[in-house]
Design a binder for these strands. Sequence first.
DNA 1: CTGTATCCCATACGATACTG
DNA 2: CAGTATCGTATGGGATACAG
Lengths: 118, 118
Amino acid sequence: MKEKETKMLTFKGKEYPCCASLTMGVIGGKWKTVILFHLTDKTLRYSELRKEMPTVTERTLSLQLKNLEEDGVIKRKVYTSKPPLKVEYSLTNFGKTLIPVVRAIADWGHEVIENNEV
Amino acid sequence: MKEKETKMLTFKGKEYPCCASLTMGVIGGKWKTVILFHLTDKTLRYSELRKEMPTVTERTLSLQLKNLEEDGVIKRKVYTSKPPLKVEYSLTNFGKTLIPVVRAIADWGHEVIENNEV
DNA sequence: CTGTATCCCATACGATACTG
DNA sequence: CAGTATCGTATGGGATACAG
C-alpha cells in the first residue's frame, strides 16, 4: 500500500514529478538543445549537423537524434536506399512547439556572453 | 598547434560550444529547473523545498542548491547561528533573468500534459 | 532544522574502429 | 554518407547514517 503519494506526470512512458522536469526530460542532456537549436529554422543532414557541432562524437549525436525522434520532436527522412545515404533531420509539428523554449534558452546564453564579455 | 578550432563560450570557468549549451550547463540536470521553478515567485526554506520536491534526496537537493549558488542564480541566507537553523533560498537579480526561460520550460511541459490527457 | 559523509549504481558521454 | 559496435570513463544521483 505504500505507493508514491505524489502524482507523477507521464510522457512517452517516463514519469516526471513536475512540468519543468518533463520538459527537461525531452530537451535535457548535454546535446539535445543544441541539436534543436540548429534545427530551429532549417532541415539538416547528418553531416551538416556534425559540422555545426564539431565537439560531439558520432555515437552521441546518433543516440540523441534517436531519442529526439522517439519523443516525436524531430523526424528523420531517408532519401536513398543504397550508400551513399542521404538523411535529413527536421522538426515535427510537435517539435515546433519547442521553438519558443529553445529560443529562450539560446537567448539567455547569448545575453550572458554579451554582458560578461570584457 | 593542434588546438580546438571552435571558439568556445566561457562562463564560470566552464566552456560551452553553443549559447544553448551554456544555458543548459546552468539549469540542466534532473533537478535544477525544478528548484528554480519553485523559487520563481517566492523565497523558500530548505524544508519547504523538500516538501515541494518529495522525490529528491537530501544529498542531491543540497548539491544542486550549491551549484546554483555558485553560478550566481540563487542566494542562500542564514537567519540563525545555532541549531535549529533557518535558511532561505531565493533568486538573485541575475537569477531573475532566468524566469522567462524557466517559465517557457514549465509552460511547455504543462501544455504537453494538457493535450495528452485523455 | 539544515545539511554532510559514505557508499554504490546507472547512465551519459567520449574514443575509436568498423559497416551497409 | 550515415551511422553501429565495443569499450572505457566520468558524472549524476539514490540510500542511508550521522553531524552542527
